[in-house]
Design a protein around this nucleic acid. Structure first.
Lengths: 159, 159
DNA sequence: TCGTATGCTTGAAGCCATCAACTATCGAGA
DNA sequence: TCTCGATAGTTGATGGCTTCAAGCATACGA
């Protein structure tokens, strides 16, 4: 770390992390800040580029990921935290591409269930496969670190 | 974990993580998958809601975060991986709100440097402060786990 | 000096996102 | 059983984002 970088604070890929880190409190806060930056630098661009390769917009990718089983429109909108009218458009476009289909729900005629088609299932698997590729920042860690990281995150997810 | 959950795979907040995990290879892959889901569940919604509170759209928030120093339009577009014409609109709207200003670059009259105004600097700090708050998934970890996580991530960032 | 490349802006078209309004359907209470 | 308020999804208006194409001003190299 040279003097110039010191002036601007720690940098990850040209982006100053000092400002977020300035507000981090305790190890959990510091870890969170670093997680956030890790995802900003590696996760977000990956999500966008993989989606682009598969000709999916970011919201379309999110919806595909959410469809591990048929879900109602309102449920999808809730999980994606957007307005149901917005979800109508997103599902419309996925439906036009033959990736999903609308099904009436047996118990309530207001409810539309959104289910993947076979092409939709295949595309969803391909999306998952590509997103599961870890960045070198992780693969380059020592094996013990990788295992420890995995185990800590597993404990975090059960909270 | 009950039988029904087994059928659908592990779940984090109603979202099946089994499909990504199915493609994870080794501890780094598993860690990455869990990181991705952690951010999907905690980071992404936080980013959107904090931005909303501060009346910033997601791309506006990203640009504010990138402006740790004055940057050229093309540089911003490159860092955000979008078209420069798109960046023109985003910066226009930030400029209209008095958060940034365009400055001519001394060495090249084609280049416009985008710098924060004082209100822009204050808003950027507030954005950082709110984004730096870790989720309970992390704060609820044992202290030793928090420290280990922080240290591993620090090692990962220097790759 | 001139031709090509670069940086930013403008404009068209499509997608996303919110809010308001609407129709069909449901469910609870009288 | 009937009524009314709530709910689910859709339509439409408006603004923001995103890409691509085209244009103008500027820079640079031959």
């Amino acid at each position: 770390m040279d003097v110039d970088a010191r002036k601007h604070g720690p940098r990850m890929h040209g982006i100053d992390t000092g400002d977020l880190a300035a507000y981090a409190k305790g190890p959990a806060g510091e870890a969170w800040v670093m997680l956030t930056e890790l995802f900003f630098v590696h996760g977000r661009p990956r999500f966008f580029s993989v989606g682009q390769q598969l000709e999916l917009s970011p919201p379309q990718s999110v919806v595909l990921r959410l469809l591990d089983e048929p879900r109602a429109m309102g449920e999808l909108a809730g999980l994606m935290r957007c307005d149901s009218s917005n979800m109508t458009g997103i599902v419309d476009r996925l439906e036009e591409r033959g990736l999903v289909e609308r099904q009436a729900a047996a118990h309530d005629r207001r409810i539309k269930l959104i289910a993947l088609t076979e092409p939709g299932r295949e595309l969803r698997s391909e999306l998952a496969r590509r997103l599961a590729e870890p960045p070198e920042a992780l693969t380059g860690l020592a094996a013990a670190d990788q295992r420890a990281l995995r185990d800590i995150l597993a404990r975090a997810r059960s909270r």
